[in-house]
Write a protein that binds this DNA or RNA. Structure first.
Lengths: 115, 115
DNA sequence: TCGACCTTGACAGAACTATGGTAAGGTTTG
DNA sequence: CAAACCTTACCATAGTTCTGTCAAGGTCGA
């Protein structure tokens, strides 16, 4: 299986060599190392790197965000805590309590018209 | 059911009023509104706020991180994309490819001793 | 009606992210 | 052996997050 140096991986993924080192430091994509310490990116790493770029492009996702999901995967205790918090944070989805909010919005609107 | 103003909610949760407004702006905890536009925090909101503070305290989680998980919940397309990326990002967990990494670390260590 | 709340909006600063550069030195390869 | 890589470790900068404070004005309760 062929492997690639940091510059070769950069060429093939659109990231800069600098960013590949940064991504490693954040724990997102960690290449293997040669015996002398050179980074060796495999095809799988290249796929990860391309996917990461794609996520940012299509969804405007921060590296930080992805890093956190990775962290959730690695820390089950944290994942449980977040999940149980989420369970309480029900998406509002047009409930009944919206009644006076609407009244307020209407008022605001009227005031805008007055101003 | 009793509700609380922003200051009362702040007292009861340890957040500052300023932060409660900020949290609303990020979409994390959105209180109801009175007819005149005042924020009305219910017991449920207080629980969310306390839970959020707890997450930060215990796990050193950023608000951003939680906001992203909420976003995942709301955007299934994004969640699928992230999840399929994650599926490729297997946790390394002491695999066989570590062999020459270890060799490199040892070398590094020897060199430190030499220096 | 008056004081103590509330609203939004703005400015501000410390800390961090994302990205680039540069420097000093080791490795690979023709 | 020399050129072209690689390594780590810094410095720098634009943008964002988090948090406070202040100002101008609306609301509420005694």
């Amino acid at each position: 299986m062929p492997t690639f140096t940091v510059s070769q991986a950069a060429e093939r993924t659109g990231w800069s060599p600098r960013m590949l080192r940064y991504l490693e430091s954040t724990g997102l994509v960690i290449p293997a190392r040669s015996a002398s310490g050179y980074r060796r990116y495999g095809e799988h790493d290249l796929e990860l790197l391309r996917g990461l770029a794609e996520l940012r492009r299509r969804f405007d996702v921060e590296l930080d965000d992805v890093a956190f999901v990775v962290r959730l995967r690695r820390e089950p205790e944290l994942r449980d805590a977040v999940e149980s918090w989420l369970a309480g944070a029900t998406v509002p989805a047009a409930g009944a309590a919206e009644a006076d909010w609407i009244a307020w919005e209407q008022r605001k609107h009227e005031q805008l018209l007055v101003a």
